[in-house]
Nucleic acid binder design. Structure first.
Length: 482
RNA sequence: GGCGCUAUCGUCUAGGGGUUAGGACGGGUGGUUCUCAGCCAUCAAACCGGGGUUCGAAUCCCCGUAGCGCUACCA
């Protein structure tokens, strides 16, 4: 039987990293086994669902590259089939009508929870004879339909947790159909999974306790349950289930923060799964070839973005120059630092600047700030205060820079080798280490204490901007303005 | 409260009777170098606790403990 898996988010929020990882595992499993990946939107809660949220989930999946082979299907549209399945269960006596007053039940539950803590519906209506049940329903008496949980134990072999079982007496005769005739979650899920011929249910650990209920429904319907694989939850740094208060949890937020989808995909894959060897950075094809449910761990995993940043840096470094340029363009536009010339006659210059920046870039969003001294036409830099104090510790620095400025001004060729030779010659003549000049110059042209190689930077900055910046800083230092 | 799941460096994890308990991120140190990044070298860093079983438990069993999840006419 060919593999059919599904991702079934309820559109009550954007696609968060936990859901994204579940989607990835399903997608990977389908790809690995030549199966089909189905997307089913569980939109039966009309209050909380919205089209915009459906859109957000689809966008998130598209960004990650886990687009469905089938779907999106919308669960709410299958309501009639779910109701029909409930009728089937009723006809087979796998379910029964419950005429209990909801307010009474609620009171009982509250009282029980206060005392012993536990409460399962005491099955008062389970024994109502069929004829009476039919008569009362026909007479219009309000009722719900409940699943009849048989005695015994419900067990399954979870692909991740192994043998798992629940004693049936702690499983409630859950409501399948509400008094208004609408189906509830567990019924809808099973009904749809059966209709969609799902073979493997790969979902979060939080569904473990729904599983025995669903298995009873499968059997009641006369179907063999699928294989279940419950993936451990993703946790926040406090080890609690990841939620908004832990910071960014939407995958699209990571896109906006300058992360690459391949990096995010790779990182999420490694959260709770490992290839069985020591690889960390893996391409999609490698991931597909290596992915297996057996490699999924059993314990929750803390979502710590430190490693994601490293991984993203790896992927950024490997981007082609064109791809990096396109990403840089978007980031610069967003930062209002973009100049159209960089796509035209200044294209070559732009690419050279980016070549310096790319290997040092961890996230795309940091490009504008990291390269501001290149992109911002202004020479009014802000100087790193600590760097300033250190670079101009000695009084001889400012005059030395003036000499350097003069030498560079008349340099026949504005390129790295002569620029460096000139600076070093001056340093030697002055009897100081080259760093004594290099550091203040770096500060003058970039405002910072750290940058790509100074002479490469200066070459790209050009003579005008370089000399203007050096002169500006020296001037301000001499006048005691800094 | 009940039921369930889980427990190896700070984090992601490997290891499933005998290992110097391995790797990655992050951190430290040293080297390369004008700084940063990178690269190279190197260091620190873990088996939740207690009982068993065994010649020998991180590993198997039991009991604790802790964390998390579920416990609706929500999904």
């Amino acid at each position: 039987m060919s593999v059919r898996v599904r991702f079934a988010p309820s559109p009550t929020g954007y696609l968060h990293v936990g859901g994204a990882r579940t989607a990835i595992f399903n997608w990977l499993y389908a790809r690995r086994h030549g199966g089909v990946f189905v997307l089913r939107v569980e939109d039966t809660d009309a209050q909380r669902s919205s089209e915009a949220l459906v859109r957000a989930i689809l966008d998130g999946m598209a960004w990650l590259g886990t687009t469905p082979d089938e779907g999106p299907f919308f669960q709410a549209r299958n309501r009639e089939a779910h109701v029909a399945d409930a009728a089937k269960l009723l006809a087979r006596d796998k379910a029964y009508r419950c005429f209990c007053d909801p307010a009474t039940l609620r009171a009982e539950r509250e009282a029980a929870e206060k005392e012993t803590g536990g409460y399962v519906y005491p099955r008062r209506c389970a024994a109502i004879p069929r004829a009476e049940s039919d008569r009362r329903a026909a007479a219009g008496e309000a009722h719900v339909v409940r699943l009849r949980i048989p005695p015994g134990v419900t067990a399954w072999r979870d692909r991740i947790h192994g043998e798992t079982s629940f004693p049936n007496d702690v499983i409630e005769d859950l409501v399948l159909l509400r008094s208004d005739g609408t189906p509830t979650y567990n019924l809808s899920v099973v009904s749809d999974d059966v209709a969609m011929r799902i073979t493997h249910v790969i979902r979060g650990d939080d569904h473990i306790s729904n599983t025995p209920k669903q298995i009873v429904i499968y059997r009641g319907l006369g179907h063999e349950p699928p294989t279940f694989a419950h993936v451990p939850l993703i946790l926040g740094t406090d080890k609690k289930r990841l939620s908004k208060r832990h910071g960014a949890t939407s995958v699209l937020e990571y896109r906006d923060r300058g992360f690459l989808p391949d990096a995010m995909f790779n990182f999420l894959t490694l959260l709770g799964w490992n290839p069985g060897d020591e690889r960390q950075k893996m391409s999609r094809d490698e991931l597909i070839a290596a992915f297996d449910l057996d490699g999924v761990g059993t314990a929750g995993a803390v979502f710590d973005t430190t490693k994601l940043e490293w991984l993203n840096g790896q992927y950024v470094t490997e981007l082609t120059a064109e791809a990096f340029a396109a990403a840089a363009r978007d980031a610069l536009v967003a930062a209002s630092l973009w100049n159209d010339a960089w796509e035209r006659d200044r294209r070559g210059w732009f690419l050279q600047v980016l070549a310096l920046l790319q290997p040092r870039t961890k996230t795309l969003a940091s490009i504008p700030s990291e390269g501001k001294y290149f992109f911002d036409p202004s020479d009014e830099l802000e100087y790193d205060p600590q760097g300033l104090a250190k670079a101009f510790r000695s009084d001889g620095v400012a005059p030395a820079l003036r000499q350097l400025e003069a030498r560079w001004r008349t340099l026949p060729e504005w390129s790295a080798a002569p620029l460096e030779a000139e600076l070093r010659a001056l340093a030697t003549g002055l009897g100081v280490p080259a760093g004594t000049l290099i550091h203040p110059v770096r500060l003058a042209v970039t405002g910072r204490t750290a940058s790509p190689g100074l002479f490469e930077v200066v070459v790209l900055l050009g003579r005008e901007r370089t000399l203007a910046r050096v002169a500006r800083l020296v001037d301000r230092v001499v006048r005691g303005l800094l």
